[in-house]
Structure formats: structure tokens, C-alpha cells
Design a binder for these strands. Structure first.
Lengths: 347, 347
DNA sequence: AGGCATGCATAAATCGATTTTGGTTGCATT
DNA sequence: AATGCAACCAAAATCGATTTATGCATGCCT
């Protein structure tokens, strides 16, 4: 209840406390930070007085001296057209939602960096001592730029061919693929096609591997298409058109990029075919896009809340230089079954 | 393409540039910031050299000296149970998505502040010079705390009974209410109930006013219930139960809090009634919750992307002290019709 | 008594910029 | 030639903390 008597915005400096306590600035600093040699009684008295005065250290001064920013950034590397649209950076925002909590628990502020192209210049205007990058492509510009500045970086999802291996949280892309493909098989799919992005992301590599292993073990045909992430829904749609024309027998499409998957559904329906009766469709990220698609898309629960917290913790350890951990594996992905892959009655 | 030759993490100081250019630190500072009296040729040469060396000013030093943080916070005041759950802070995150872009355009970093109760202590560990608060309740702790620190604050949605009026972006709560109620009427509703939260938020005030005006003009009964935001879905459900029991004739419920609306739908269905045939349900925020409800909820497009950008701009003006603008009105809300209020065939 | 730790507190240096103040120079005016 | 006035540049103060180096008692030991 002690009504703080200060009106001026945090005008108090360490000198004021020192004067009030009748000691030097040094002693105040030592007392408050539990450092140096200070008589326990003096220490307590100083703390008391600082408390009463409502003293708060000036963060900017502290940072200049200590060289720490106490803040980290969350960076998306997806092109805007995929990230934007109806879900407006859904993936990143879902991560941000739990990451900000985890960050604040560590005493770190979380700053958001949108996937602007122009962001490059602004990226090193940021006073941060670490960054979490979401699914970086190989040789991601943001990543190298940050690392050159000496900012610690960890990624959610492994970076392919990283110049120097980035510590990362494993998203278990192979397992994710396996789960989706197996589900499609259980729903009766005999010819499943894979539609992935052109950029060198690790989740595609994993997905492709899972796909090849899967169809290889079953003597199914290998049908893989690629589309530009930047093309968003329409790129997915276009790729779907090409797929259906060149491989009429397709009865399922696995499109890990949600924007592509929505495009696929639209194209299928536009051709007078039905989802899921004629073509089953599944995607990876279970976000707004997947859920508000008609029919809603079967997807995977990646447990992004836990993943984000793990990422923050890992980054924190690396910033404080007290870890060699370079891979952290999160919870197993779980299937979220929706109407896009399951026929209304029976299977 | 000029490959930056520096490897050490931004070790260069203004002194290095000064030495290289053969001038004083002062002149370098003046030259780079287009300040003071410097020979245009010197100025250009200094800039050139700084560029070549890859000099970047130390942000912490700059901030200590200038007293500006160049960052702002986005603060949610909703209790976690409403904000969390399946949509995981949907409203806040949607705002964050566009706000971060707008912020970076102004050269501001956007930091996220989760609705932790414990956040109070951490809130003034943040080095920010402004904050956007989302729909603050009257006498919101965060708001007063920030203002006392001298941090500029603007809100998205007006703060009720603000001690000193907060500049805000008008969410047009009255208009939102009118749109929803009119839609329900058009769908044949004769007895619409209103379910709002107990906390003193302006959107409730507006909504209630719109409701009273609406039913008053039509000789419909006034049926208003309130539930604790902190109770989330189950509170909404409980309130719905009470409503249906005390007013059996209800044929529509307007529940602006999406968590409440979902609770309402569940309760209605649990009682063997149908949505929308027996009870029409509408909500305000068109987020994940509204869309993944079964049936999906009719809601309102608040144009949060534009709203957020307006908020950032307004805050920016206030930080730079060059505005008296205290209210900014965004785009008109628009109805998003979904199955929760429209019967499958005919109306 | 001389010598040596030891405990406590302070003065001064430091972080890297910006801003204030002051001092040269060159040129025009009387 | 003396004065004034810009224009240009630099030294030093400043921002508010942390860290280092130093000083001064006091107590203990031989």
C-alpha cells in the first residue's frame, strides 16, 4: 500500500541513494547487487533506503556498463505471403504467445521481428543479446547477419546445411511426415502425392525423406511437387492443378505448408472433385488456416507452446555461455484428425 | 555486395572512426547525425569512412545519453484464462502481428508483455518509452504503473473512467453491438439475451448501451447476464445455463467474449437444443475460437490490422510530444456471418 | 613495536555515445 | 590595423550505472 511518493519519472539515481544513506555510490551499487565487501548492516540499510525512496536503477546505464540487453528477438524467416493472409503469421504468433511468457520468466524481454525484407537494415538497430529464428532456410540472411553481430541464435526446427551448426529445437519432421502418411493410408489412400516448398528448409527435407521411405516400402509411385512459398495459396493451387493433370490417379495430397494445402483444396473442389472422398488432404501446421478451411484440414499438433519454451531456455543457456547443448527434442507430434481426410461415413 | 570485413562483434567505437578520419569524436558524431557545424566535405568523408569501417553506434550508449529506448511494449490486460486456451491470446497476437510491422517502420522495437500477474514487477524492468494496452479495464494496474514511470500509453479500445483520459483507438463498440443485434433480428430472433463480462471494460459498456437501445426500441425484454472473464468457457456455460432456466423463451444470445460464446454453444447443445435453429449465438472477436467452434460463430471483423497500425502511429506521435490527438477512429466493423446464427435453409 | 592480513568504504576509471562550451581560423567591415 | 562574425573543429562534461584500484583502520602474530 505504501504510496510511492515519487512523481517525476524515475529521476532518482544511485547518487541520490548514496547521499540519503551517507555512503558512496560504490557502496550503494555493491550493496544492492550483493557484490563486494560491505558490512551486512550497511548493506541492509542501503537496501532499505533505496526501497523507501523507490529507487530503480537506470536500465540504459546498466546496460551500457554490463554489455547486456536483457532482451531477445523472435524472428520469422517465412516470406510474407505465406506468413500473412488470414492467419497473419499464425505460426510465428503462436510461438510468440508462449515464448513471451517463457522469456519474461527469465527476465528477458521478447521483441518481435516481422518478415519484412526491409527488416535487414533495422535488424541491427535492435539491442538484443539473442534471437530465436523460426525454421530458417539454409544460409538464411537474418541468421548470418545476427551471428556476425555476435548475437546468439537458436532455431525452432533445424537449419539445413548451416554454415556453423545452429543450436535448435528438433521439430521431428520425419515423424510428422510418417504420422500423416500413415493416417492417409489408413483412410484408404493408395496414391499419395507430396507437395512441398522450394526453399531449403529442413522440415521439407525430413518430410521428403519420410515420404520416400514410406512409398518405397509399399511400392507406391513417388509423386513429388514443389511450389514457391512466396506464391501462397495460388502457388499451391497451381501445383495441385499440375499434379492432378499429370497423375490422374492421385487420391491423397500431403501439403505441409498450410497455405498450399488450402490452395489444393480449392483447386480440387474447383475441378468438381470432393475432399476427402476423391482426394484426401492433410497439412502440417494446425493453425487458423487449417481450421477454417472448408472442409477443415487434418493436421499435426506440434506442441508449439512447449517447443517455444524449450527454445527460450536453450537460448538463455547459450547467452550465459553455460551449455554445449545443441539439439533439444520436444514432445512427439500428434495427429489432429479433421474432415479433410476422413470420409463422413465409414472409411 | 561490399563484404563487411569486420569479424569482431561491433567492437568499433566512435573513437576508431575519429582516429581513422583524423578528426575528433565530436566531429564524427556531428557528421553522422547531421548536427552541428561541420564542413560538408568533412561530413561526407567521415560518413564514408564510417561506412567503410562498418561502424555502428552502440545502442546502449546512445540510449543512455539521449534518454530514448526506441522500443514500445504491447500489453494485454485480459486474464489468462480468457486470453489463453485454444486461441492462446488470439486477440493480442493478432494485434501484435500487424503492430510489429508498424512499429518497425517507425524504427521502434515491439516487445510483448504477457498477462502474467507476476508481470507487475517485471513491467518496470522494461526499457520502453511507450506502450499499447489492449482494452484496459478501469483503473488497470498496468496502465497506472506505466504512466507513473513516465511511459506514454495509448489503448486499443477506450479505457472506462480513466483517471486521466488515455489516448485511444476507438473500437466502435456501440456500432459493433448494433450490427450483431440487427443481424440476429434479421435471422428471426425475438428474445435476445446479452452475456457480458463483469470487469469494467468499455466494450461492455458500449455493448450494453447498444443492447438496451435496441430492445428498448422494440419492446423486447431486457435480459442481461454477466460472467467472470477469469472463468473462461465454463463461466460462459454456467451463465448460459442460468439464462435458459430463468428465461426459457430466449432464442438468441449475444456473447461478445469469445470464450463465453463457445461455452454458450456447448451448454445449449448439451441441453439438446440446436444452434442456430433454437438458439442463435453471436460473438465479437473473430478469432480461432469463433472459427473452430461447432458450428462456427458469427462474429465481427474489427479490422485489427488497421487498428493496430493506428495505435502505433498514435503512440509514436505522443512519444514525440507532437500531438494532442486523443481519439482515433478506425474502420467500421463488419459482420462475418457463420453458421451459429443462420439456419441452413431459409431463415 | 614492527609487519601483515583483513574488513570496510571510497575515489576514480570505465562503458560509448551526445551535448556544451570554448578556441582557432579566415574573411569582411570599419 | 583593429574589430566582428561566422564557420569549423575539439576538449571536456554528461548520462548513470559497474568495476578496479586504493586508502584506512583494526586486529593478530611474532
Amino acid at each position: 500500500m505504501s504510496e510511492s511518493p515519487l512523481r517525476a519519472p524515475s529521476r532518482l539515481t544511485i547518487a541520490d541513494v548514496a547521499r540519503a544513506a551517507g555512503v558512496s555510490r560504490t557502496t550503494v551499487s555493491h550493496a544492492l547487487n550483493d557484490r563486494g565487501q560491505v558490512d551486512p548492516r550497511t548493506r541492509e540499510r542501503v537496501k532499505q533506503i533505496a526501497q523507501e525512496l523507490g529507487y530503480r536503477p537506470n536500465l540504459r546505464a546498466q546496460r551500457l556498463r554490463t554489455g547486456k540487453a536483457n532482451s531477445i528477438a523472435l524472428v520469422s524467416s517465412m516470406p510474407f505471403s505465406v506468413a500473412g493472409g488470414p492467419s497473419r503469421l499464425g505460426f510465428m504468433m503462436e510461438v510468440a504467445g508462449s515464448a513471451m511468457e517463457a522469456a519474461l520468466r527469465q527476465g528477458l524481454a521478447l521483441v518481435l521481428v516481422p518478415p519484412l525484407d526491409a527488416a535487414e537494415a533495422l535488424l541491427d538497430e535492435l539491442d538484443i543479446d539473442g534471437a530465436v529464428v523460426i525454421e530458417p532456410a539454409a544460409h538464411d540472411r537474418n541468421v548470418t547477419q545476427l551471428q556476425r553481430r555476435g548475437v546468439k541464435v537458436v532455431s525452432i526446427g533445424r537449419q539445413p546445411e548451416g554454415d556453423q551448426a545452429l543450436p535448435y529445437i528438433d521439430l521431428q519432421g520425419y515423424e510428422t511426415g510418417r504420422i500423416l502418411l500413415q493416417h492417409l493410408e489408413e483412410q484408404g489412400a493408395l496414391r499419395t502425392a507430396l507437395l512441398i516448398g522450394t526453399q531449403p528448409r529442413h522440415s521439407y527435407v525430413d518430410m521428403e525423406q519420410a515420404y520416400r521411405d514410406f512409398v518405397g516400402a509399399r511400392d507406391m509411385p513417388v509423386i513429388i511437387a514443389r511450389a514457391e512459398e512466396a506464391g501462397g495459396e495460388s502457388a499451391g493451387r497451381e501445383a495441385c492443378r499440375a499434379l492432378l493433370e499429370s497423375h490422374p490417379g492421385i487420391d491423397a495430397i500431403c501439403a505441409p505448408v498450410d497455405a498450399f494445402a488450402v490452395g489444393v483444396v480449392k483447386e480440387v473442389q474447383a475441378r468438381g472433385l470432393r475432399v476427402p472422398e476423391d482426394i484426401r488432404v492433410v497439412t502440417r501446421y494446425d493453425g487458423l488456416r487449417a481450421r477454417s478451411c472448408q472442409p477443415p484440414l487434418t493436421a499435426v499438433n506440434l506442441h508449439l507452446d512447449e517447443i517455444s519454451a524449450l527454445a527460450i531456455d536453450l537460448l538463455f543457456e547459450h547467452i550465459n555461455g553455460r551449455t554445449q547443448r545443441t539439439v533439444v527434442t520436444g514432445p512427439k507430434p500428434g495427429l489432429v484428425i479433421r474432415a479433410s481426410s476422413v470420409s463422413p461415413r465409414g472409411n
